[in-house]
């Protein structure tokens, strides 16, 4: 007797089935963005602690309703902002011997600008009519100024970009012991250039 084995299943309709599934997924799902700029809002203080900041340690930025920028009451173009921010943060205006003296700053050391990156605060203020897009652009430029400074410092200390170290630290696949080392590096750099962007509209 001839043993024919099982007859072959016709797979011709497999493509149709797969197409059906594909179309189902196309209509029920969306490609979503799940990345953005992280910020920490300030806590509400019932009794306002008024910190007496020296005026020179604050860089006031105002965005008006048309998206025009005013930095220290002087109108500027948006693409100048990053350089201005870097100059301000990295200025290191405190003289040597002062407790606020910054030994890693490479700025001009202008005594009329910020003392130390730790003291330097960038205060963003906006109109109620300002568009969200303009606000995000400004925030993005400021973060990118900080990132550049952090990368520079990190290259000097560890020969690696801060962004590389940070993403390795945040990667869940990184081993635990490695993480401890990375965490220390991240904290050192963040300590040198803390992200001090305040929102003046939040009182």
């Amino acid at each position: 007797m001839m043993n024919k084995g099982a007859p072959e299943v016709n797979a011709g309709s497999m493509a149709d089935i797969a197409f059906l599934l594909l179309i189902f997924f196309l209509v029920t799902t969306v490609i979503e963005s799940d990345a953005g700029l992280n910020r920490l809002l300030p806590r509400i203080n019932p009794d306002q602690i008024i910190v007496d900041r020296k005026k020179k340690n604050v860089l006031p930025i105002f965005i008006d309703a048309k998206g025009q920028l005013l930095v220290q009451e002087r109108p500027i173009e948006i693409n100048e902002l990053k350089a201005i921010a870097i100059d301000f943060i990295d200025n290191g205006g405190a003289p040597a011997g002062d407790p606020a003296y910054c030994n890693y700053c490479k700025g001009n050391g202008n005594p009329k600008s910020s003392d130390n990156p730790n003291n330097a605060i960038i205060s963003v203020n906006n109109n109620r009519e300002t568009s969200y897009g303009a606000y995000i652009t400004v925030q993005n430029e400021l973060v990118s100024a900080y990132t550049e400074l952090r990368n520079r410092e990190s290259q000097k200390l560890y020969g690696q970009d801060f962004t590389t170290i940070e993403s390795a630290f945040l990667n869940p696949e990184t081993e635990k012991e490695q993480k401890e080392i990375l965490k220390e590096k991240v904290l050192v750099i963040q300590g040198k250039y803390p992200l001090n962007i305040s929102d003046a509209t939040l009182k």
Partner: peptide, 30 residues
């Protein structure tokens, strides 16, 4: 939306602070 006014956003942020939801992420495209 990028054309929204900051006034509304400030109000939302103020509300978030009241309930102590301080961690925010401004979601954007790359």
């Amino acid at each position: 939306d990028k054309n929204a006014n900051m006034g509304l956003i400030s109000d939302i942020k103020q509300e978030l602070r009241k309930v102590n939801a301080l961690k925010v992420n401004y979601t954007t495209y790359e």
